Computed example of a mutant assay.
Amino acid sequence: MEMEARVRDSFERQGLMHHLGAQLTEIAPGRVHIILPSRPEVTQQHGYFHAGATSAIADSAGGYAAYTLFPEDSSVLTVEYKINLLAPAEGTHLEAIGTVLKAGRTLTICRLEVYAIQPTNRTLTATGQQTLIRIDKRPER
């Protein structure tokens, strides 16, 4: 199965991304974009995007960025990630970008960025770094 189809197929099986309303928008080797439209279910008490929703799409964007570089008969799991929330996230949607910084045989390191998109501007609202593990000979279910 080609890389893009494998990533899309896996993303479709992600219950949390479906529950949040997140959408996979760009896939390239070592880089994935996910958007999350604004709606009341993903906000906190002040109307900003909830940090949990922001973190979830960042984690998935990084995970899928790593997965684009993995062999077909493998899977990916997050080992750890650190995220810094830089500004309140408000706008029409969020865009998370995961980018592979270093792909290793077992561990892969990704940069995570989340932007709040408004009609007239794009604001970096969160940034982070993530470590993922490749599990060989264990395709996804």
Rank of each mutant, 00 (worst) to 15 (best):
Q44A: 07
Q45T: 10
Y67I: 04
L69Y: 02
I83R: 03
I57H: 01
L85G: 07
L69S: 11
T68W: 00
G52V: 05
A89P: 05
S38A: 13
Y81I: 01
H46S: 13
T99H: 10
N84M: 02
V79L: 15
Y64Q: 00
P40T: 03
D73Q: 15
A96L: 00
Y67L: 12
P71E: 12
R39G: 07
E95H: 10
A96M: 04
E41F: 08
A51F: 08
P40N: 02
V42Y: 02
V42E: 01
F70M: 11
E41S: 14
A56C: 00
G98V: 09
A58H: 03
I97L: 05
T68L: 05
Q45H: 14
S75Q: 13
Y64F: 15
D59S: 06
D59T: 05
S55F: 14
A66L: 10
D59Y: 01
S38Y: 14
L94D: 11
R39P: 03
H46A: 14
A56M: 00
L86R: 04
A65C: 08
E90D: 14
E72M: 12
K82Y: 11
Q44E: 09
A53S: 11
L86G: 06
H93Y: 15
V76M: 11
G98A: 04
P71D: 12
H93W: 12
G47N: 06
L85S: 08
T68M: 08
E72L: 14
L94I: 07
F49G: 11
A96R: 03
Y81G: 06
A66S: 15
D59E: 13
E41G: 12
L86S: 07
P40D: 13
G52A: 04
